[in-house]
Design a protein around this nucleic acid. Structure first.
Length: 547
RNA sequence: GCGCCCAUAGCUCAGUUGGAUAGAGCGUCGGACUACGAAUCCGAAAGUCGGGGGUUCGAAUCCUCCUGGGCGCGCCA
């Protein structure tokens, strides 16, 4: 719908000798009386052409040939051009939608460009919590979205399996191990206090018995670190797969060290004179690339910082031949962006290649009251618990019903309610309802494959035309969602679509004695279902046949 | 102290890269099941878009200051 209009407007501009701007703004006007689509183009051109906007608008309208696409074209207000499509155009578009399915709804924006999306990447030192879940839902939906938009997408999880934190995890597990075996042993300072560490210790006993009962940590270190890591990773992978999230690649930080990539990258920057020594440490000249201060890569004790491996990691990413790199981070890491962008710059690449999407914090509520979480005491609500209590679909949907950069308050009680308080069900129910209409139609002897002969022009009711138009605006929403990397736009669209389908269902009967009308309405239902399924698929939310 | 993000109906949030008279859901109040699923529908009430100033044909949207909240500012990750 939008594309058709865009082409027509461009042609009109060209025939007027006006060079069409690269982006022609076309929107669905707020008021239905303003038409189906509208453009403020004439107002935007007014300054450049030094003519009143309404005159420009009139000229553009005059140059649009009558090909039966529009019922009405009007110049309104300060210079809007409002287009109302003919029913003929709507029916033939609906027919295309029915025939082409997803192909009609998607647009090849990416043209095969390669995008890597790195998300979740939680430290393997504990189970995923709700905040990770939000990142997972957003990253997954974005990946689906870009894939549908013609990009080649790789989903990556970066595992911070090197350094002090994993050592601390191993040490904590070792302490619990000793404790379970009845040996007195001091718990490491700032160690991990969660229950899951005891589970690791128990599993360790099952695996190796009391082999390290009387050992020092130094003797058992390698085993406990590796054992804990392995176990935490499998827990994380399980949680993610229960949440319906998959990854293509799992990049290990340790591996970057083992393969010498960290050293190589530091050497490379050294060669460029961007690393210097001071106070026995090695520093990266981040300030040369817009960061607030220079950053340490090798500490004075000779140990690399987390930043060091991150440099190597992003070097590797950027040399991986991607056209775009997306990192999805919790908003608490925002201070990290400038130094990473500085790295990209320093490595000689375009810093715009790296796009960091910040996902805001999630505050957990229960019945309107905040649930306190204390990471220090090892008490936090895990993603797993929430999924078990409210379900994966609902959890994902709620995460995708907000812009990612706005704070989210997640109320478990509200999420559990299987009522209209829960927008997922509203959308899923529309799909399930359509399925049962088809089941009913089949009982009456109307087969779905006879829909091709449906005469769509029988869809004359105002509500039906409104639904058709809504369906035809899906590609616009989709395009905007892809370009802005904002999956939540799909979520809102789906709620709106369900929001006009349900009233329609209540007011009109699809399956009646009138076979022609029945076929036409079934075809409309089928189109609605196609769009619902397409959208839910992008969100990573299921579309159950029955609920 | 410096930096980033946020502030829209009682609550949770949208607002289409600056567009027309600011929207939805929940909640509240009142209604609808002997025909395709009531996880639904119909109706009603509800706003100084945090505040001031600026940019322009036009601002919830951009700039600036202020207020309030979140987060970050380590040779931690």
């Amino acid at each position: 719908m939008k594309k058709t209009l865009e082409t027509i407007i461009k042609k009109s501009l060209e025939s007027l000798g006006i060079k069409p701007p690269p982006y022609i703004e076309i929107e669905v006007p707020r008021e239905e009386s303003f038409g189906d689509l509208s453009t403020p183009l004439a107002m935007a051109l007014a300054k450049q052409l030094k003519k009143p906007p309404r005159t420009i608008a009139e000229d553009i309208v005059k140059n649009i040939p009558d090909e039966g696409i529009f019922e009405k074209i009007e110049v309104a207000g300060p210079g809007f051009i409002n287009f109302k499509f003919s029913t003929g155009f709507l029916y033939s578009s609906l027919k295309s939608l029915l025939e082409e399915g997803s192909n009609f709804l998607r647009e090849d924006i990416g043209k095969g460009r390669k995008v890597q999306i790195e998300f979740v990447s939680a430290n393997p030192t504990g189970p995923l919590h709700l905040g990770h879940g939000r990142g997972a839902a957003v990253g997954n939906a974005l990946a689906n979205l870009l894939e549908a938009g013609g990009y080649t997408v790789e989903r990556e999880y970066y595992i911070n399996d090197a350094g002090r934190q994993v050592k601390l995890l191993g040490h904590s597990a070792f302490a619990r191990y000793k404790e379970l075996l009845g040996v007195e042993y001091p718990f490491p300072e700032e160690g991990y206090l969660g229950e899951y560490v005891k589970d690791i210790a128990k599993a360790a006993i099952e695996d190796i018995g009391d082999k390290y009962k009387d050992s020092d940590f130094s003797e058992a270190e390698e085993f406990f670190i590796n054992f804990s890591l392995k176990m935490m990773l499998s827990v994380i992978k399980k949680d993610l797969s229960d949440f319906g999230i998959r990854f293509d690649t799992w990049q290990s930080e340790q591996e970057l060290y083992q393969k010498g990539e960290v050293q190589k990258t530091i050497d490379y920057l050294k060669g460029k004179g961007l690393i210097y020594e001071s106070e026995n440490a090695l520093w990266f000249k981040a300030t040369e690339f817009g960061d607030e201060k220079d950053r340490v890569v090798i500490k004075s004790d000779g140990e690399p910082t987390y930043f060091a491996s991150d440099i190597a990691y992003h070097m590797k990413k950027i040399q991986g031949g991607y056209d775009e790199l997306v990192n999805i981070w919790g908003a608490d890491h925002h201070g990290y962006i400038p130094r990473l962008k500085a790295v990209i710059d320093a490595l000689g690449y375009d810093r715009e290649k790296l796009k960091v999407l910040l996902v805001q914090m999630v505050s957990l509520m229960r019945g309107g009251k905040p649930v306190q979480m204390s990471k220090r005491a090892g008490e936090f609500v895990t993603l797993k618990e929430v999924i078990e209590e409210v379900g994966a679909d609902t959890t994902k949907f709620i995460f995708l019903t907000r812009r990612q950069d706005s704070h989210l308050s997640f109320d478990i009680e509200a999420a559990k309610a299987s009522s209209a308080e829960n927008p997922v069900f509203y959308v899923q129910y529309a799909n399930a309802r359509i399925n049962s209409i088809f089941a009913h139609a089949e009982e009456k002897g109307i087969k779905a494959d006879s829909l091709q002969e449906a005469d769509l022009s029988l869809l004359e009711a105002e509500e039906e035309l409104r639904i058709i138009k809504k369906l035809l605006t899906y590609p616009m929403i989709f395009e905007a969602a892809v370009l802005n990397h904002e999956p939540h736009r799909i979520t809102f669209y789906l709620q709106e679509l369900a929001g006009i389908f349900h009233p329609y269902y209540n007011k009109f009967r699809v399956v009646t004695e009138d076979r022609g009308l029945t076929l036409a309405r079934l075809a409309l239902c089928k189109a609605i279902r196609t769009v619902l399924k397409e959208g839910l698929g992008i969100l990573g939310v299921t579309a159950p046949e029955r609920m």
